[in-house]
Nucleic acid binder design. Structure first.
Lengths: 209, 209
DNA sequence: GTCTATAATAGGATAGAC
DNA sequence: GTCTATCCTATTATAGAC
């Protein structure tokens, strides 16, 4: 119980920079946020930022890594796993939305900068994440669990909902994380399932909460 | 057939400024886009912009008006109308998503700036639009057509999907506008309807394509 | 690890010629 | 209606003291 995270004191400066920068990037965009604003929010002077990060770009780059590294791993694992694809999609969705709701950073700005040449080195992993999600949806359609919808449009709608949830929670680490994750994952599954009566069994098999 | 819009020539400078600025705002954000970039895209010099708009802010303000004025009118009309709420939601959704897909401007940046104090005068109409959408959903839950979901979360998920579609089409006026509008409206209705078998009747009653 | 001071650049907007 | 030239401010980042 001596963790600096749990008792609310002594958050390291580098950590506070990431949190405040993510909020400002989320609200005003990466290019629209100045290093002065970040420094003011952290309550240090502007040049002191450059002791913790070599450039403004590197602050954003770290936020991209936080957003994508675990998500891509989970999605790729579920895409390659055995068993009901609908259940695997549900499990991935609950994990990722829950991650979003618990994250202390506002990751809103990530999708907005990922196509910027400045972050070209981060693009491939994001695309791998997208491919994994699409693969699970295609498996669910082929297996007959999902309606024969446009898999591309379905993957997009899912991303859009997650993106909206990211902007909504904005790094506030909401306590109802699991509840929201299950509600949104259920919303998505209902829109795609051929037989709504299977929803209860899918949730039970996924054993997330 | 002499319309400047249809034969592709002679688009007025003011119009080209709106189109190119909307694309740049959508890609790099309002604050992240310089007036020099806009001018370059329009192929005029930077100060010439200020002959057509008094400031960079006023370009964005006009894009906000384009996004919200008709949408708010349609949503408020459907919220106050008679008949099946699910049908009225479907009709609004098809209209708005179709509008998005036909719009020659990239309206991605609108949601990102609407909370900025710079555009405080545009906030009330956006909130009226949100209230109208929520009202239709609440009516559909009360009437028993929709499952007893969280109306707030449902309205959010709908906005997120429309917001994603705005970013996707990015003012390219896609030819499959009606098809996409119906697919996404169907996705949303399926996620909310208590009885999936009513979907066909709702679509028929809405008579949108 | 933070500060002040400052360099170097890019930004929004104006003046006035054509 | 567009241009060149320019003003003034804000920006990212560095240098060097403490």
């Amino acid at each position: 119980m001596a963790s600096p995270e749990t008792n609310g004191e002594e958050v390291p400066t580098r950590e506070r920079i990431l949190r405040e920068a993510s909020r400002l990037f989320g609200k005003k965009g990466f290019h629209g946020t100045s290093t002065r604003e970040i420094a003011n929010a952290v309550e240090i002077r502007q040049p002191s930022l450059f002791h913790h990060f070599p450039s403004k770009r590197d602050i954003m780059a770290e936020l991209i890594d936080i957003d994508h590294s675990e998500s891509a791993a989970v999605a790729e694992r579920e895409a390659a796993a055995e068993g009901s694809p609908a259940c695997r999609l549900y499990r991935y969705l609950v994990w990722d939305i829950s991650f979003i709701c618990r994250c202390p950073y506002d990751l809103t700005s990530v999708e907005g900068v990922i196509d910027d040449p400045l972050f070209a080195d981060k693009l491939e992993r994001r695309n791998a994440l997208k491919r994994a999600r699409r693969s699970i949806i295609e498996q669910a359609i082929e297996s007959g669990e999902f309606l024969e919808v446009d898999a591309d449009l379905a993957e997009k709608a899912i991303v859009w909902i997650m993106q909206g949830d990211i902007a909504e929670t904005a790094g506030q680490a909401v306590p109802e994380a699991d509840q929201i994750a299950q509600q949104l994952a259920t919303f998505i599954l209902r829109a795609l399932l051929k037989d709504q009566d299977q929803l209860a069994a899918i949730k039970a098999d996924a054993h997330c909460g």
